[in-house]
Amino acid sequence: MTRFFTENVHIGYGDSLIVKDVSLKIPDRQITTIIGANGCGKSTLLKAMTRIIPQQSGSIILDGESISREGTKKLAKKLAILPQTPESISGLTVSELVSYGRYPHQSGLGRLTKRDWDVIDQALEMTGTKDFKYRTVDSLSGGQRQRVWIAMALAQETEMIFLDEPTTYLDLAHQLEILELLQRLNAEEGRTIVMVLHDLNQAARFADYLIAMKDGQIVKTGTGEQVISPNVLREVFEIDAIIGKDPITEKPICLTYSLIKGDKNHEKIYATNRTATSSYS
Rank of each mutant, 00 (worst) to 15 (best):
S66G: 10
H198Q: 06
G14N: 01
Y280H: 04
R102H: 07
T113M: 12
R102D: 03
V219P: 03
K47M: 06
P83Q: 08
K74M: 14
Q183M: 14
A203M: 04
T32M: 09
Q84I: 02
I253M: 03
E189R: 15
T277F: 03
I239T: 11
V137L: 14
L62G: 01
E7S: 15
Q217Y: 02
Q56P: 08
Q217E: 15
I35Q: 02
T168P: 02
Q144C: 00
Y209K: 12
G110V: 13
L181A: 11
A48Q: 01
S279D: 13
K78T: 09
Q146T: 03
E157S: 02
E96S: 06
T221N: 07
E65T: 08
R184G: 00
V194W: 05
E70I: 09
T2G: 14
R145C: 03
R191P: 04
T93G: 00
D240A: 11
F5R: 14
K133T: 09
V194A: 10
R51W: 01
C254Q: 06
V194D: 11
A241P: 05
I89R: 09
N186H: 07
Y280W: 13
E250Q: 12
A203T: 07
D208Y: 05
P83Y: 05
R115D: 12
T168Y: 05
G101Q: 11
N201I: 05
G41S: 05
K114V: 09
K47N: 10
G101W: 06
L124N: 06
E70L: 12
I67S: 00
T192A: 04
S95Y: 01
R51Y: 00
Y270R: 10
A155W: 04
E177L: 11
G58V: 00
I242P: 01
G224F: 01
G142W: 01
I35H: 11
G39R: 08
G41T: 01
T127N: 14
W149A: 02
S279A: 15
Q202Y: 11
Q217R: 11
Y134E: 15
Y100H: 06
D131V: 15
V196F: 04
T221A: 06
R184Y: 15
R69N: 13
G222P: 03
D63I: 08
Q122N: 10
P252C: 03
V9G: 05
G190E: 07
G91V: 01
H174L: 04
H10T: 00
L163I: 01
L79C: 11
L97A: 00
I269L: 12
S99C: 06
K251R: 13
Y169L: 13
K20P: 07
I178C: 05
D171R: 02
P54Y: 04
V227W: 06
S16E: 15
D246M: 01
Q122V: 03
G190D: 01
G190A: 10
K261L: 14
T168D: 09
D131R: 15
M1S: 14
H174Q: 15
P166T: 05
T223S: 15
F206D: 03
S43I: 04
S99I: 03
S57Y: 05
R135S: 02
Q144N: 07
A187Q: 15
I269N: 11
L200C: 06
Y100N: 13
V22A: 03
P230A: 06
G224S: 09
I67K: 00
I11T: 01
P230V: 14
I89K: 15
